[in-house]
Structure formats: C-alpha cells, structure tokens
Amino acid sequence: MSEIPGTKIEELHEKLRKEAGNSGYYLNPDKEFTLDLVKSLLINEERFGYPACPCRLASGKREEDLDIICPCDYRDRDVTGYGACYCALYVSKQTSKGEIPVKAIPESRPGKQERLKMAQEQNKQTKETPFPSKLPLPVYRCKVCGYLCARPEPPDICPICKVTKDRFERFI
C-alpha cells in the first residue's frame, strides 16, 4: 500500500470540514485525531474504491458495504444519541464546542445476518407497494441524512450530505 501524501489528507480534511459546515454537521475539532481518520478514509478509498468507515470491517464488495461508506447510515443517530459517530469523525455541535468529551461508542450497525434479513424485508415491502400510488411522483429518502425528494429518480448526489444515488431508498 502506497503512503498517502500529507497534502492529500489536508485537502480532503478541508473539503469535508467545509461540506459539513455548509449542511449543519461538525467535524471532530481534534485535528490530529481527525486527520488520522481522513488518512484512513483515503487508504480505504485506495484499497476498496470507496471510503469505507475506518473503524469497521469492510467486505470489499460495495453492495455489502454501502451502509458503512462514510458518511455512514448510522452517523446521524449516533451523533444525536452519543454526541459523535462511531469513528468520531463527525460530532454534535455540543461536542464540537468541547462541552461533551469524545468517547468510543457502541456499534449501531446490525450484525450481518440481521442486515440481510432487513434488506430482504425492505425489498419485499417495496415490491408489494409498487408505484404509482395516489401521489404524482415517488418519494425517495437519503438513508444517511434523511433528505426527502419527490421526483422520478433519486439525485446522483444528495444535495445535503453529498452521498451517491445508491444510498437512497423508496420512501413512499
């Protein structure tokens, strides 16, 4: 594995910091800690082709790892519940001000078997309630930030949290 250049780490850190600030999120203010996480995201991007969470075991198959591509599907509820996401790259406003210390938190991601079961149920539900419903357009939900939109298809990039189209689900 090639060494990730420091400038690349700083650049990505700055990009994430700006994006977070623009959409109401906060990066962990501990810069040394955060830069280490950003470096790990770049390592994962290089070895898997996508920035899987540095603190979770990725399978290397994008489809199986979708929920743990940073920002992960569990970020928002962990930031709300614990003041930080699982790896602590993202934190709450209170944590960012230093009012709550950053600690390791329990894993919110369900186990593999449970994830498979949930995906099957979701699939079944979508199939059983095919569009068109009474609405003129289907509603899609970003699984990461909860952004909802009524349009023929989800957007290529979530306008709020910048995740890709494959992170959306049919909501209505």
Binding site: F33, D36, L37, S40, I43, N44, P54, C55, R56, L57, C87, A88, A104
Partner: peptide
C-alpha cells in the same frame, strides 16, 4: 483490530 481504526490504535 483493524489497521485503519483509530480506537484500535
């Protein structure tokens, strides 16, 4: 551990 995980480090 994971080589990239900050809590593991």
């Amino acid at each position: 551990t994971l080589s990239t995980c900050i809590w593991c480090k």
